[in-house]
Design a protein around this nucleic acid. Structure first.
Length: 589
RNA sequence: GCCCCAGUAGCUCAAUGGACAGAGCACCAGACUUCUAAUCUGAUGGUUGGGGGUUCGAUUCCCUCCUGGGGUACCA
């Protein structure tokens, strides 16, 4: 099934051809002047320039052509040559009926599915997740679900940060605290303990301490660098210790991500390419792409026509250790070779833009990524406090993701108590509703923002339940389900769609036809905020309809059945869009 | 220094080069013996950071300046 705007664009394009113009001018979009028409075509204006004609005359030609189509109730020309289109109610109801009869709700799948890998975790071994990790997970999860729905073969990979300098820092800090552990004894040969010497809580305390030490104490930093290099080189005790850090961290991370309903197909990390690094570097050397500079092995990636400076990619530091650019490059190699990835999306914050440009250039230049492989940094803005500076808690630290989740769920519970919602439900269900409401608030507050922009971390907004919020969407979706349940209990069932009679009803139908456009736009731009915008607009219009048309009290049975069908379709569309945003809907609330 | 990004209502944010720059929050005035008021209706609120330019048309493209943020080879 084709999107309505596509069908209209095809019709208008044919009309342009009939009049001797290029079909590209036939693009039809939803009108931004709903008082003048439901859809608009602005093609007459640019066409006028190209063909040297009066735009209004061209618009008139197109309008005359389109008049032959019985689907239009009204075609008008306004201003310098805008063509405004309004559909007949009969056609609109018929189109919505087709959507309802379609399993995919009228959303066409991609023509050529690709193997897509979404890299979106951002989580690090040994570092607890803080609020800054929120966006990568939430946006990445939404992109992964969207690509999946659109028909691509998608894999999500958390790509753990587990092979960098922070590992050495934690090792050295732990050695300072517990020097007698066998992991630090270079002469130790026996098997290492199977039990981790530290817990997740220990790790979460050790890392910040180690990180602070490294900043203040050059000797500590030097020791950490050395330890990192030795770890990468294969020092047995460090490897054994690293494994404990990894396992303990991953267990904690899985718990956090599960709580957020964020799921990865792969839990790979930087360390998973360690065995390929030497080989890859040797290949790059054989290709003559590398050189030595200040003791480091580098790869030049600047091009003669560059307008900005482009530093080389450092493959190996002077101390022999690798940086994340090297592991990222090797990871591309693995994804292309082993997974057959045709498109790799990195959902990582915008501070990494230059880094990814370097890595992508190196990948294409060396042939690690074929020219046909898409490498995209789908960056997002950083999270600032209300003062516009990077967010800090009142105490000046970072807020843990866990704590934030607890906060929003508590706020949801408080709000429920306040409005006497779910009072008769058992405790487990109340808790579950609060979890969904709190997370919906949190996720929607994030996803409604344009991905690329910095945004303000505002707890009040995250735990707000009124207006344009996640809970508003849940409330509306639950409201629709509630009506359907009540109707069903009264023996009423949805029936065929009738032409709309009320304004709000017509507008809900029109908005429903925009579903494929919203998904396509979000898909093309990899920006879930378009889904978030659509969900709100649709829910808002449904609430207007709800207030204007009393469904269960309607006396005309056919109209009532049609309204129930509309309610049901609305509900299905909301379920889909909220699912694509990673938001769960409670059964009732 | 150089490079990148941003600046729109009091606040947080929208607006494929198109029509009268839109939402939410806050504030004000209304609608509940309810299909769940976490809702709905209405009102107020703007020199789109400043200045030039391109265009029939600029929040959008170009130049310049101001302000803020980020990046700038051995952290991630």
């Amino acid at each position: 099934m084709q999107a309505l705007t596509q069908q209209l664009t095809t019709l208008a394009g044919e009309a342009f051809v009939q009049s001797g113009y290029d079909p590209q001018y036939g693009e039809v979009t939803v009108s931004n002047r709903p008082d003048l028409g439901q859809f608009q075509c602005n093609g007459a204006l640019p066409a006028a320039k190209v063909y040297g004609r009066n735009p209004r005359d061209i618009a008139q030609q197109i309008a005359d052509q389109l008049q032959a189509q019985p689907i239009f109730k009204e075609i008008t020309i306004a201003g310098p040559g805008f063509i405004n289109l309004t559909l007949t109610d009969e056609f609109l109801a018929g189109f919505v009926q087709q959507m309802a009869d379609d399993e995919r709700l009228g959303v066409p799948p991609v023509v050529q599915p690709r193997r897509v890998l979404v890299d979106y975790g951002g989580a690090n071994v040994a570092k607890p997740m803080h609020v800054g990790h929120l966006r990568a997970g939430i946006i990445g999860e939404s992109i992964r679900r969207l690509f999946d729905y659109m028909g691509d073969d998608v894999t999500g990979d958390v790509h753990l940060g587990d092979w960098g300098t922070q590992m050495g820092q934690v090792i050295v800090e732990l050695q300072r605290r517990l020097p007698d552990l066998p992991y630090f004894d270079a002469s130790y040969t026996g098997p290492y303990p199977a039990e981790s010497p530290i817990t997740l809580a220990d790790l979460e305390e050790i890392y910040p301490a180690a990180s602070a030490q490294a900043k203040e104490n050059p000797a500590f930093a030097e020791a950490a660098r050395l330890a990192t290099a030795e770890l990468q080189n294969g020092r047995a005790g460090y490897r054994a210790l690293w494994q404990h850090f990894h396992d303990v961290s991953v267990a904690g991370l899985k718990e956090d991500y599960d709580k957020l309903d964020i799921h990865f197909d792969l839990w790979l990390g930087e360390s998973d390419v360690q065995d390929h690094l030497d080989d890859m570097i040797a290949r790059l050397q054989a290709q003559g792409l590398t050189s030595e500079s200040d003791g480091a092995l580098i790869m030049e990636i600047a091009e003669p026509d560059d307008k900005k400076p482009m530093p080389p990619l450092i493959l190996r530091k002077s101390d022999g250790a690798v940086l994340y650019g090297t592991t990222d490059l090797a990871t591309i190699d693995m994804r292309v070779q082993e997974f057959g990835s045709e498109l790799i999306l990195y959902v990582v914050d915008h501070r990494q833009r230059q880094h990814f440009e370097q890595v992508f250039r190196a990948a294409y230049k060396s042939g690690i990524a074929p020219a046909t492989t898409g490498l995209e940094h789908n960056y997002f803005g950083t999270m600032n406090g209300k003062d516009g500076k990077p967010f800090k808690t009142r105490e000046g630290g970072t807020m843990k993701l866990k704590d934030l989740i607890v906060l929003v769920i508590a706020a949801a519970l408080a709000r429920m108590a306040e409005s006497h919602v779910a009072e008769g439900y058992d405790e487990a269900e109340r808790q579950e509703i609060a979890r969904m409401v709190g997370l919906a608030a949190l996720k929607y507050a994030d996803l409604m923002n344009q991905r690329t922009k910095d945004y303000v971390f505002d707890l009040d907004r995250f735990s707000s339940f009124e207006g344009r919020t996640g809970p508003y969407l849940l409330y509306t979706a639950v409201r629709a389900r509630s009506i359907l349940h009540k109707a069903s209990a009264q023996g009423l069932a949805p029936g065929p769609f009738l032409p709309p009679t009320a304004d709000a009803e017509r507008t809900v139908m029109l908005l429903l036809t925009g579903l494929p456009d919203a998904l396509q736009q979000a898909y093309d731009t990899r920006m879930p905020n378009h889904l978030a915008d659509y969900a709100y607009a649709l829910a808002n219009e449904f609430n207007r309809f709800y207030n204007a048309c009393h469904i269960l009290r309607e006396e005309n049975a056919a109209v009532q059945a049609s309204w129930l069908a509309l309610t049901q379709l609305f509900r299905r569309v909301m379920e889909l869009v909220l699912h694509l945003l990673g938001i769960e809907i409670p059964e009732r609330m």
